[in-house]
């Protein structure tokens, strides 16, 4: 509306000016179209404000009777009606959180519920700033992981790294577990089989000793010095004996049989009794 208003006046004034304004308006329209193509449609035409100012200028300039009544009309049409209704709730302030709603209608006094809420809130930042805490704990964790890696690196092979974590898996996991237990003071391998036929046990032991022997032999032949062999000798445990039985020999069938050794042990080291006598 206002655009046409401006145009009409400018007819009276000058052609050049009109052309200029037209160009300007066109450019604006172009811009608007481009803008609207890219974003949403504009609510009101952008063009309005500019020509209105010029209209005032023109009025001052010519003061013609033709344009004057139009100006009054446009002024009146610009007033917008503002409706305010206090009866209807509105605004984001009315939106309470679910917790808040529940807190107010719970059996506790509302302020106490709020305290609970606020005491809950600081708990979250605590977990958030756990980074600092995690610094300590994390350092310890990494330390442990490194020590384990160093101790158990001989168990690692290519297959270890197939999984997402570098922790040993499968057989090597059991071995690593064994190592850790031994570190903590376990006497035997946890993987050692407790019960098996004696022949199998003997076979295993024999194989182990022969392997050890061959290793030592190879080492000596090649001039390699190995650790000292552990003596596997065990002192024989003392025999349990009956109460009223001689502490030497074998008591079988009502007779005490003494072996030669037993006799020797009873006799003790032989004294050269004759020698002494001779001296005298």
């Amino acid at each position: 509306m206002a655009v046409t208003l401006g145009k009409r006046k400018r007819y009276v004034e000058s052609r050049e000016d009109e052309a200029e304004v037209d160009l300007d308006a066109e450019a604006r329209a172009l811009f608007q179209r481009a803008f609207e193509a890219k974003f949403n449609a504009l609510e009101k035409p952008v063009v309005i404000s500019q020509p209105e100012v010029e209209e005032d200028d023109s009025e001052e300039l010519d003061g013609e009777s033709e344009g004057s009544d139009w100006g009054g009309l446009s002024d009146g049409g610009d007033v917008a009606v503002q409706v305010i209704d206090h009866g209807i709730s509105s605004g984001p302030a009315n939106e309470m959180t679910r917790d808040e709603l529940r807190a107010f209608m719970s059996s506790k006094p509302p302020s106490a519920a709020k305290v609970v809420k606020s005491s809950k809130l600081p708990a979250n930042p605590k977990t958030a700033d756990n980074d600092d805490d995690e610094g300590e704990a994390g350092n310890l964790k990494h330390d442990l992981a490194l020590q384990r890696l160093l101790k158990e690196s001989h168990l690692l092979d290519a297959s270890t790294f197939s999984g997402p974590s570098a922790a040993p898996e499968g057989k090597s996991r059991l071995k690593a577990l064994d190592l850790r237990l031994k570190d903590l003071g376990a006497k035997k391998d946890a993987s050692e089989q407790v019960k098996m036929p004696l022949s199998h046990r003997r076979g295993i032991v024999a194989k182990a000793t022969s392997r050890e022997a061959s290793r030592r032999k190879n080492a000596t032949e090649n001039g390699i010095i190995l650790e000292k062999a552990k003596s596997t000798f065990k002192a024989p445990a003392k025999r349990e004996r009956a109460v009223a039985v001689p502490s030497v020999g074998k008591f079988r069938g009502g007779t005490l049989k003494l072996s030669e050794r037993d006799v020797k042990s009873i006799e003790g080291p032989k004294k050269r009794a004759g020698g002494k006598g001779r001296r005298r």
Binding site: F104, S107, K108, P109, P110, A112
Partner: peptide
């Protein structure tokens, strides 16, 4: 009582375990 009186005990340091169940 629950929403206007009980909260006023808070300023006296009386705030825990107060409940008024209707």
């Amino acid at each position: 009582v629950r929403t206007a009186i009980l909260p006023s005990f808070r300023s006296f340091g009386i705030e825990n375990n107060l409940e008024l169940r209707i």
